[in-house]
Design a protein around this nucleic acid. Sequence first.
RNA 1: GCGCGCUUGGCUCAGUGGUAGAGCACUUCCUUCACACGGAAGGGGCCGCAGGUUCGAAUCCUGCAGCGCGCACCA
Length: 892
Amino acid sequence: MAEIPKAYEPQAVEEKWYGFWLKENCFAADPKSPKPAYSIVIPPPNVTGMLHMGHVLNNTIQDLLCRKARMEGKEVLWLPGTDHAGIATQAVVEKTLRKQGLMRYRDDLGREKFLEHVWAWKEKHGGIIIQQLKKLGCSCDWSRERFTMDPAYSKGVQRVFVDLYNKGLIYRGKRMVNWDPAARTALSDEEVEMTERNGHLWHIKYPLLDQDGKPSADEFLVVATTRPETMLGDEAVAVNPEDPRYTPIVGRKCLLPLQNKAIPIIADSFVDPKFGTGCVKVTPAHDPNDYQMGQRHGLPLTVVIGADGAMTPAAGAEFSGLDRADARKLAVEKLTAAGLLLKTEDYVHNVGYSQRSGVPIEPFLSEQWFLKYPAVEPSIRAVEEGRIAFHPERWSKTYSHWMGNLRDWCISRQLWWGHRIPVWYRKSANGEPPEVSCQIESPGPGWEQDPDVLDTWFSSWLWPFATMGWPDQTDTLKKFYPTTDLVTGPDIIFFWVARMIMAGHEYLGDLPFRNVYFTGIIRDKQGRKMSKSLGNSPDPLELIAKYGADALRFGTMRSAPLGQDVLFDEKDVELGRNFCNKLWNACRFRQMHGGEVQAEIDPKRLTSDDKWVLLKLDRAIHEITQAFADYRFNEASQTLYRFFWNEYCDWYVEASKAVLHGTDEAQKASTLAVIDFVLSHAVRLFHPFLPFITEELWHGMGYSADMPASQGGKTIIFAPWPKALDEDFIHHYGLQETVAAAVDARYELVSQGRNLRREGNIPAAKKVKYILKPSGGLSAQEAEVIKLLLNAEALELQPEYQPEKGTPVVHSSLGELYLPLSGLVDTAAEKVRLGKEAEKIEAEIIKAEQRLNNPSFTQKAPPNVLQEHQKRLADWKAKREQVQAALDRLKE
RNA sequence: GCGCGCUUGGCUCAGUGGUAGAGCACUUCCUUCACACGGAAGGGGCCGCAGGUUCGAAUCCUGCAGCGCGCACCA
C-alpha cells in the first residue's frame, strides 16, 4: 500500500482514472454479451451548448444508474450524443456572423454559404459539452456518440417523414400559426410560453354608418382591444346574435377609424355578451379566433403585420414599415387626437412569447406542414397501464391530459439549419398548381425541394432507436432496445417524452423505455430559475476545479429529492468535498495500521462493537438498495453519509482504537479485518456517487487484489454491488439485534458522560477519572471502550460505590456513571442540572401514562406498540428513581 | 377557470399513522498520534390554519389561506 496524502486531491486522480477507463474500454457496450441488458439514451444536449447545473443533475443520475447496473452484472449501454437544436444553434450563429459584419440577414449569404458557417461553428464548439460530460465522470459509450444530423440519422428522419406522408398523417396547409418575428419562423404550440403581463384595454369608438355610408355623429360602437395596432386589419365588428342591444344593427356597417374603411357588423356566437361592451373587433389575419370568425363569415384577410413584425403597406402610409410596438403607440396617439379613444384601462392578460427568442408571438397566416400524431391510443395505454412507469408517478396525469387533447403538430420551420423537408415541387407551365412528390432523393431535373426544415423535435423523437442504427435490425437495437430508464426534465414531457413514446409505438411497435425519471429544476438559493442574464448559474467546471467532480456529484445528489426542484447552494458541493475528505482519511487511518488486507473475519474474536458496525452496514445496504429501487438518490446518499460518517467514523473507528492501540496482536488483526470488510463494502456502495475517489481507494487500499479481473480486479466499475448480509453470515458471526441495542446504550452513556464533563467545564484535554456503578455485566474490553471514548484517565467499575454528596452523575440502563471531582463539586449547579433532568423525565412519564391509562389504547393498539410504550414507561420510571436518589443525596 | 406541487427549527430540506430528523448557520470547548475539508457537548420546532377519521395524526380525509408551476381561444 502506497502512502497517501493527508487531504484528498481530486484533480490528478480524476484525470488518471478517466483516462484509464477510456483506455480499457470500460464503458463500451457489447451487444453480443450474455449478460442482461441495461440501457439509457442520453437526452442529447444542444450541440453548441455548455454544461450547466441542469446537465449535472441529469447526467449524474444517469451515471449513477449505469454504474450501479454494471456492478450488478448487467451489460450497460449509455448512449451519448448531441442535438442540432435548429433554432437555438441558428440564432447563435446568425448573431455571431452579424457581429463579425459578415451579414445583416441570412439572405445576404444564401443558404449554402450560411450552412457552411453553421457546420464550421458546430465543428468548433460541438465537442465542448461532450468533454465536459467526461469531466463529470459520465460513463457513456463514447464509441457510439450520435448527432441528430449524422447522415444515417438524417436518413431515418426523412424516411419517417415520407412514411407518415404516405400514411396521410402529414399534410400541408395554410393556417394561422405561432410566428416568431425575430427568428422569422413558425413555432409549435409547445414553443409558446404564455406569460402574464400588465397591459391595457383600449376602448375605441367605431362610428356607425348610415344608409348613405356617412358616419353618424352620435351613433357608435365601442370595441375594447389589447392590441390597437391590429385594428388596421379589421374586417368586421362582431356581436353575439342573442344580444338584444345589438341585434337591430347586425348587417349594418361601421367606420374603421384610421383606415377610414367601412366594415360590416356581424353576429357570431363566439362573442361573449357579458364581457366588455359585447362588441369585438375582428382582425382575421392576426388573431386565431378572428380568423375562425373570418372563415365563417367570408371576410377578407388583410395582412397588416409582416413576417418581420413590421407593419405592411396595407396598414397605411403612416404605419407602413413601423415595428408593431411603435405602431401600437402611434395608433393610440392618433385615436386620442381624433377623440375616438374612450378610455384606457389597466388590464392583466396572458401574452404568448417565443420560448426561443423571447419576443411576443405573432399569430401569422402561412403555408406550413402539420402532423397528425400516430399511435396515440397505444401510447396513452402504455403509461396508464404502467408498462411505462413515471417517477414520480404524478407526471402521468400531465401526460394523459396532453395526450387526450392533441392538436396537430406544426413541424415546418423557416430555417436553414435542420433536416430539409423531403418534398419536391415541379412548376407546371400552364399556371396550374405545381406537381408535388414526397421522397428522399430528388425525382430529377426541374424539381425543387421544399425550402423549409423540420422542427428539431421531429428528429429528437426518434432518438431511442435512430441512434441504434434503425431501420436496420442491428445487434445493438436487438440487445438494448427498448431502453430501461430515461432521465429527463418534466419541462420536455410534451416536446420529447410523449413524442418518443408515439414514435416508438409507430415504428417498433413497442414502448421506447420502461421507466422515466423526471428530475426537478435546479434553482438558485432564492428559488429563481438559473439563467445567464441573472448570472446566478454557477459554472459546473469551476465547481469541479474547486471541489472535485465527486464532490459536485455527491452534493447535488444529496440535495435533490425525487420530483422536487433543487435549490442549489455551493455549500452542498462543499459538503461533498468534505465528505470525500472524510472517506479519504478514514482509509488513511486503516493504512496507518499497516499489514495486509484482512480478508477473513474470525467470529470468535468479534467484539460487540464489531457486531454493531456490521449490523449498521447491513442496514445501510438494505436502505440504499431500496432507495435505488425507488429512484430516491437523495435518500441513498443521505444513508451513506449517515452510515459512514456518524456510525462508522464517529463511533466504530473511535471505539476500535481501544483494540488498535492495545497490545493483543490477534485481536488487532480481527479489528482490521472488520475495518477492511466495512471499507471494501462502503467504497463499492459509494462508487456510483463518487466514481473517482472510490476507484483510487479501491486500488490504493488493495481491495482490488482479491477480485478476479472481470469483477473488480482491474477496476471497481465491475466490482460486485454489495449484497445485504445473508442469514448464514448473520448467524455465523452472532449478529443479534440485542447486541446492537446494548452497544447503542453504551454509546448513549458515553454521550452523557461527555456531557458531564462539559457541564463541569472540564477541558477536553484534561484526563479525569469516571466511576461506573454497573447495573449489569460489562466486559473488560467494553469498559476499555467507554474509557477511551470518554477520554478518561480511568474508568473504575464499582458496584458498591457510595458517592460523595453532590458528585455529578448520569443514569442509563447500563448503570450510573459518576464524575468524582475531588473538592471541586458545585452542589448548587448539580442540583439545577438534576432538577432539569427530573422535569424532563416527569413530562415523559406523564405522556406515557396518559396513553397507557386510556383503555381504548390498551385494547386497540397492536401488542408490539403497547409493549413498546410499557417498556418506555418502565425505563423512564427507573431513571426517575435514579435521578431522585441523586437529588436526595444532595439534600443530606 | 381547471390541474399539479409546496407550506416541518434562523436557512435549505428529509420524514409520511405509534417517543420530531439531517446539513448549513448559531453557542461553548478542543489543534488528542485518520481527518480543523476535523472532534466533542449544546441551544433552537404547539410540523401553514380550521374541521374530521383514529386508541393515537406532522403523517390519512375535507375545507381555507399563502407561495410556485403547468394547461386553457375570451376581445
